[in-house]
Design a binder for these strands. Structure first.
Lengths: 204, 204
DNA sequence: TGCGTAAGCGGAACAGTGTTCCGTATAGTT
DNA sequence: AACTATACGGAACACTGTTCCGCTTACGCA
């Protein structure tokens, strides 16, 4: 659950995610957690444009409480996003332990694709210029590229896939494919992702 | 000024752009024109998320009038977009008459780039799933690909550029470059577009 | 244990959206 | 000139994000 990002540029946002910064009252931490999980659920169901009040209601919290911890709506969005990026990145290490290299890779790509599935509307937000989103892309790459890189290396080491695929490029491709969702056939994303993995297996 | 699109799928939107469909009162047509130009200006300055009231005020028209002609805000956005796509596409034929092949091509690509410059925020709207935007991409391609194709053919015919560049791909490239604007250096778009044209000239 | 207080809470109120409604004005016809 | 379908304007409505402030409570300290 805990973030593993090295430094969380101080002064940008307010809320405390994991470790204590300077003594946070227990009820406050409880509310922050409730908001984070409620927001994640609401965003997944209705997109990132869901009304703030839907979230506070689901979290059983007043709107004032939300704005105490996240001064802007976009700060909450960014926090949820970081939180889920971290969760997804951490899953890579877990899969690497539990499964053999290629299966770990496949499972993680599915997980990654699931991550994108709950992010409809965020791609637009990213381009909005809101400063709250400014360093989300960097966090995204900073967490995902090493995670994918490790999985690829392990599979390549075992001689199960090619060695000449750059993790950042594969990541970008999966992201592009997963984002293009609307007006496209249901299974499109799955098929394309699978195709990429098969491509990795091909030794030509 | 007039639209050249063949069929304007009936029943989708309401407002009359150019030719009369079934007798439009003179004052109504006047207001539609005022709205269209006012909206274009406001969108260019503030992006497509600009408040409706800014537009009606600039057009000297009540909000009710707007909604009479464009039942939804997005219908107005779509109408302005189509209008400007048409204007830009028509410019291609004009340039082809007035200038020699390559200069006509260059001038039109600049014009196209100017078109994208006034479209900040629309890329996001396109992905929003609003049915009003559903066939805008098709209209975009339907008008721009032939326009660019003609310019490329003429220049290639005159032996001034290569013949192996697909208009749809070049169009896509210019669009991608022109959309990537924020957080990038000022002259980036110009430099990249120019680079593409120089690439066309190169005969290897 | 009990107290004082800073930290935190809730939700009513505010400001700014898109959209609807309806009484009034008028273009085009007879 | 009179008549009426069409169109107009802008106040009012519903729904946003955000602020404000009186009340509550967790927690350090006697």
């Amino acid at each position: 659950m805990n973030s593993s990002a090295p430094s969380a540029e101080p002064g940008t946002a307010t809320a405390v995610d994991g470790a204590a910064d300077r003594r946070v009252r227990a009820d406050a931490q409880r509310n922050i957690d409730a908001l984070l999980t409620a927001a994640a659920e609401v965003f997944a169901e209705c997109g990132v444009d869901a009304p703030v009040r839907d979230i506070t209601k689901k979290a059983g919290v007043g709107t004032g409480t939300l704005y105490r911890h996240y001064p802007q709506r976009s700060d909450l969005v960014a926090a949820v996003y970081r939180h889920e990026v971290d969760a997804c990145a951490d899953a890579a290490a877990r899969f690497a332990e539990e499964y053999e290299p290629v299966e770990a890779l496949v499972r993680w790509l599915e997980r990654l694709q699931g991550f994108f599935a709950t992010k409809r509307g965020l791609a637009s937000a990213l381009h909005s210029g809101d400063p709250a989103y400014e360093n989300l892309p960097a966090h995204f790459r900073g967490r995902f590229v090493p995670a994918l890189s490790a999985l690829l290396d392990a599979a390549a080491e075992a001689g199960q896939i090619r060695k000449d695929v750059r993790p950042d490029e594969l990541l970008h491709a999966v992201a592009q494919i997963s984002m293009a969702a609307p007006m496209l056939d249901e299974g499109y994303v799955d098929r394309m992702t699978r195709l990429l993995v098969d491509g990795l297996r091909y030794s030509g």
